[in-house]
Design a protein around this nucleic acid. Structure first.
Lengths: 212, 212
DNA sequence: CTGCAAGTTTGCAAAGCCTGCAATAATCCC
DNA sequence: GGGATTATTGCAGGCTTTGCAAACTTGCAG
């Protein structure tokens, strides 16, 4: 679910991470069984053996329980894009990041599947996920703008970035097109193939705009 | 704000529409002055001289107050796409719909500006707007799939549809890039130019995917 | 080991949103 | 006019979210 990186951390930090993880796991489990709206925070708190107030402390919005490490992911993507060498394109950096990201998710297929199923069942959660993605969209737009030598607020990089973010969203659905329990996880290669097709789509779109 | 189509309607319907309009207008005004979150429903009710329960009756979610006629717009787009003649492409139908839609908005520039400013100021509203757009996305994906002779669930039409919906969202921002009071409304032609560039982008992407 | 500083958990309360229900009021149509 | 339909309203209850202060745990220096 979340990368447990408790290296060189004091007891305090480790305990905090553990609590956070426990809560998120309990929530995911309950959401999957009963539905998001049908699961009050009080019940999650009970399952995680913690007070409701503590749940809200870790996860300001109930929806955050479904995307516990979006912040971490965004930071890593943003850094990857910013610190890419001058000769590497935004698309290459993005692809590289996705590759390593997908790699890090190894062993978490079950949780991913749960998450996908939960999100698929609730329109509001899909919108919330998109809201999280918007941050990535801005970072990607900035990176593409750097490639093209235009302002990040120009239509061109923004359209391309928006299309790119769309790919992320489709990616989740492609990886778990049928969200029934017990399905085998799709091979990683297939995910990357989708990414490559998406980047092809976007690259062609950009070229067309620049030519036209 | 909303198209007031009270032709051949009884007093009941007319009154209903009028009430709805009054509430939405009051809400928009207050949201703009104080902010979305800073405006409780009770205050809107007071301004519109109805009970809070009535507001919730007309607008199940508070956010709906900001997008009062999204349903109408979606229905009209969906119908336009479904009933397009066989020789008209999805892109053409879409462009035609946007053109007439933009035309219908004539005279509503002030409300549009208010709305844009309100939405721009709140991340949650942007996500909600996207949520509304997802319905259009499905309709567009189906239309593109029909063009291509593939299933609506295929990656190709879905990516193209997602990119298209993105255009709608950017369109609002392009039309009101600086959401300060008193700006002149952008000319309609400029909006259509954006649409054309967007369709160019998407068309090139689709061709690249089919070729590759 | 002891005790203080810093950080965490908890309960409580208040503000809001949203929904269902039943009573009341307005409108429609015969 | 009068019964049927529909709109409006108040009320209650469940839920999320936030602030605040008290109680508790951990870290660390002496």
């Amino acid at each position: 679910m979340m990368a447990i990186s408790d290296e060189g951390l004091g007891l305090r930090e480790r305990k905090r991470l553990r609590t956070r993880l426990t809560i998120a796991r309990a929530a995911l489990e309950l959401f999957d069984r009963q539905g998001f709206h049908e699961t009050p925070i009080a019940q999650i708190a009970e399952a995680a053996d913690v007070s409701p107030r503590t749940v809200s402390g870790y996860f300001p919005h109930k929806e955050d329980l479904v995307f516990p490490d979006s912040e971490e992911a965004f930071q890593s993507l943003d850094q990857r894009l910013r610190e890419r060498p001058p000769e590497e394109t935004a698309a290459d950096a993005l692809r590289g990041w996705i590759e390593s990201w997908v790699g890090e998710q190894a062993g978490l297929e079950e949780e991913q599947k749960l998450r996908r199923r939960i999100v698929a069942a609730d329109e509001g959660l899909r919108a919330y996920e998109h809201r999280l993605m918007l941050r990535a969209q801005d970072a990607i737009a900035a990176a593409i703008a750097r490639d093209l030598g235009v302002a990040a607020t120009d239509l061109e990089p923004r359209m391309a970035a928006a299309a790119t973010v769309t790919i992320f969203e489709l990616l989740g659905q492609v990886l778990e097109p049928i969200c029934d329990p017990g399905d085998e996880p799709r091979p990683r290669a297939e995910a990357l193939e989708v990414v490559d097709r998406a980047l092809l789509f976007i690259g062609a779109g950009i070229r067309a705009l620049r030519a036209g």
